[in-house]
């Protein structure tokens, strides 16, 4: 249990997807103009990550790792399919995103129309694939750990996009040099927030 809380806190604050690894920056910069749409996108990301990371964990453990297929037949014990992991992970992610898109379209048409093009683009949101790849690289041992990591990373991303959106709403009233307006200042702000998040470094529960 302690271990799970540790992973959870680490993935939200210390290894934050946006501030520590710059993952999912494209939609992070493009959708963060208002808090409302960012909330919607953030929740969609938490949801998709919470599902895809555990699914990919099972896929990795029982299909892709060297010798993982031995549960099927002992003769597969030497088979190593890990070179297929990119293609398998992205297929899982693309289909999950399709699923989320259908659910959102049915239950919240207003959210669907405000998210517009960015919902299908979650499929190519680096944070989602990054979550699965980090899960594989860090070799989490149980399903619980992988799920906690997925949810935590999603929440970390959510936190990041909400805070930058709130700051950008206020920024409309500031007097910024013209060439720096828009994209430039958003980058510098993200950098400053990243420095702030670095204070969490080394925290261990």
């Amino acid at each position: 249990m302690e271990n799970l809380i540790n992973i959870f806190i680490r993935s939200i604050f210390v290894d934050n997807m946006v501030f520590a690894y710059f993952l999912g920056m494209c939609s992070y910069l493009a959708v963060s103009k208002t808090v409302k749409t960012s909330t919607g996108l953030g929740i969609a990301v938490i949801f998709v990550m919470g599902i895809t990371v555990p699914v990919n964990f099972l896929l990795n453990k029982y299909v892709l790792l060297p010798g993982a297929l031995s549960w099927l037949d002992p003769s597969f014990a030497t088979l190593d399919l890990s070179f297929l992991s990119f293609i398998m992970f992205i297929a899982v992610i693309a289909s999950m995103v399709q699923l989320v898109e259908m659910i959102v379209e049915k239950y919240s048409p207003s959210l669907y129309s405000s998210l517009g093009i960015f919902l299908p683009l979650i499929a190519v949101n680096c944070a989602i694939l990054g979550g699965s790849l980090f899960m594989q690289e860090r070799e989490y041992s149980t399903l619980g750990e992988a799920t906690t990591f997925g949810l935590g990373s999603g929440i970390g991303w959510f936190l990041a996009i909400i805070s930058i959106a709130a700051i950008r709403e206020k920024l409309k009233y500031s007097d910024i040099p013209r060439p720096l307006r828009g994209l430039g200042i958003a980058f510098i702000l993200t950098g400053l927030m990243g420095i702030a998040f670095m204070t969490f470094m080394g925290i261990k529960l």
């Binding site: 520590a20 994209l183 430039g184 958003a186 510098i188 950098g191 927030m193």
Partner: peptide, 16 residues
């Protein structure tokens, strides 16, 4: 990592 963002911000500033 954060300095990469700030460097890029400055590149954008100069370009624009």
């Amino acid at each position: 990592p954060p300095m990469a963002l700030i460097t890029l911000g400055i590149i954008i500033w100069i370009q624009r």
